[in-house]
């Protein structure tokens, strides 16, 4: 995403969201590792704890409990997001902490959420990392869809994999529904979201075929939406070669079943260093920079950056 920087110059801004459905798959750990990795490269980064139910990103970043949090912003006690920005021990990495009085704001109103997303998009910074909560609630989906890159963490366990598939499908339908205007089309998407719908639509691709049969022009637009929807996958807590290959089979399954292209960014091995550091409230990538897990998150970051390097080079030249 291109935005205007402080002096009105064009800056490259990227929002990365880390989600994944199931709880405890390493979303917070990966968010923190990516944010720190970028900061170590000298990038200006803001990490946002968008887990509105259970905030703990500040701990994973080794930062002190924040003075102000997202709930101060959502509840209007602070007018702008920059007022709730907190410092970390990295000069170029700042943090917006999640809410603690979560009962109050775990489910913000739609308007509150949209105001939040707009302000996130307006932050003057190079990278924004969003740590999403577990589950496929609309909160997570909307943040995921607002990002330039949506990253999903999965661990080699059935429930985690099922959750990732459910997340991909829900996110896609939500995006689809926004892209169509006609009430009949919106109704069709709602119908498709019900797994046992009478039209027999079970996958995004079925839905597409159905829409194309009704209105070829809308169908073409949606085909484009589908081609542009490309979630990224990270397999965490890998213990074997088979676990690492899971990302490839999931990528293949998604294209064969849903008709959706998923990119596999890499894997992170299961590593005792991770929880040992987290227990001491220290970021694993700082405590153990040479551990296999840190190398794993490093590869994921490098792959994300290589994809982006291209655009940035163009930005300079163009």
């Amino acid at each position: 995403m291109l935005g205007l920087g402080e002096q009105g110059r064009l800056v490259q801004k990227e929002i990365w969201a880390v989600g994944g459905g199931k709880g405890g798959t390493g979303k917070t750990y990966l968010s923190a590792s990516l944010a720190i990795g970028l900061a170590k490269l000298g990038k200006r980064v803001i990490a946002i704890d968008a887990d509105l139910g259970c905030a703990n990103l500040h701990t994973a970043l080794g930062a002190d409990p924040p003075a102000a949090t997202l709930s101060d912003f959502i509840k209007g006690r602070m007018k702008t997001l920059s007022e709730v920005l907190g410092e970390t021990s990295f000069p170029t990495l700042r943090l917006i902490s999640g809410a603690h009085d979560f009962l109050e704001i775990a489910n913000p109103k739609h308007t509150e959420k949209m105001r939040l997303i707009r302000q996130i998009q307006d932050l003057d910074v190079e990278y924004i990392i969003l740590d999403l909560g577990a589950g496929t609630a609309f909160n997570s989906l909307d943040f995921f869809l607002a990002a330039d890159r949506g990253i999903l963490t999965v661990i080699p366990e059935p429930t985690s994999i099922e959750n990732v598939y459910r997340f991909i499908k829900s996110a896609f339908y939500r995006r689809f529904k926004r892209a169509v205007r006609h009430p009949d089309m919106k109704a069709l998407v709602s119908c498709a979201m019900d797994q046992k719908n009478e039209r027999g639509i079970r996958t995004p691709h079925d839905l597409m075929a159905c829409v194309e049969a009704i209105d070829s022009e809308v169908g073409g637009r949606l085909r484009k939406t589908m081609a542009e929807f490309s979630p990224k996958l990270v397999v965490n807590q890998v213990r074997s070669q088979d676990d690492a290959a899971l990302g490839l089979s999931m990528r293949s399954s998604c294209s064969k079943y849903f008709g959706i292209h998923v990119e596999y960014l890499g894997f992170v091995e299961y590593d005792d260093c991770v929880w040992r550091a987290m227990k001491r409230k220290r970021p694993p990538v700082m405590e153990y920079p040479d551990a296999v897990s840190s190398r794993g998150t490093g590869t994921v970051l490098a792959n994300l950056l290589k994809g982006e390097q291209i655009a940035f080079d163009l930005c300079v030249r163009g």
Binding site: A244, K306, G307, I310, D313
Partner: peptide
């Protein structure tokens, strides 16, 4: 078999 996307990208712009 273990190649990831981006693996063989040119470093320069597209």
């Amino acid at each position: 078999p273990m190649a990831f996307s981006y693996a063989d990208l040119p470093a320069t712009g597209v």
